[in-house]
Amino acid sequence: MERMVLRLYVAGDGPNSAAARANLRRLLAGCDPATYTLEIVDCLRHPMRALQEGVLVTPTLLRLAPEPTCTIVGSLSDSARVLEALGLHDTTQAVSQDA
């Protein structure tokens, strides 16, 4: 299975950004670290990257691989939608069923 490439754009420690970081970590907790890479870009430290990479709002989570890419915006508090968008839905459900 192709390795999942994720990139999360945040704006410092703002409430939404902090929540997104925490939520993403929680959601990825069940995944094998070897199956994905995660880059966190702080737009306040690297302001030009947001412009160059077409990021309008923060937080924004990009799944750059596998194709097709997908974009999720927000604090990632709606777990079900995030997982579905990332294609992790089945796995987590399987985990919960196993449990």
């Binding site: 939404n16 306040l44 990257r49 947001a50 709002v57 924004t60 974009t71 604090s75 990632l76 939608r81």
Partner: peptide, 22 residues
């Protein structure tokens, strides 16, 4: 925002504003 963008929770425009300032 691309039409396919999934919205999952609150967001803000701090990031883009930082970019624009730069």
């Amino acid at each position: 925002l691309a039409p396919s963008t999934v919205q999952a929770g609150d967001f803000d425009i701090s990031g883009i504003l930082a970019g624009l300032a730069a």
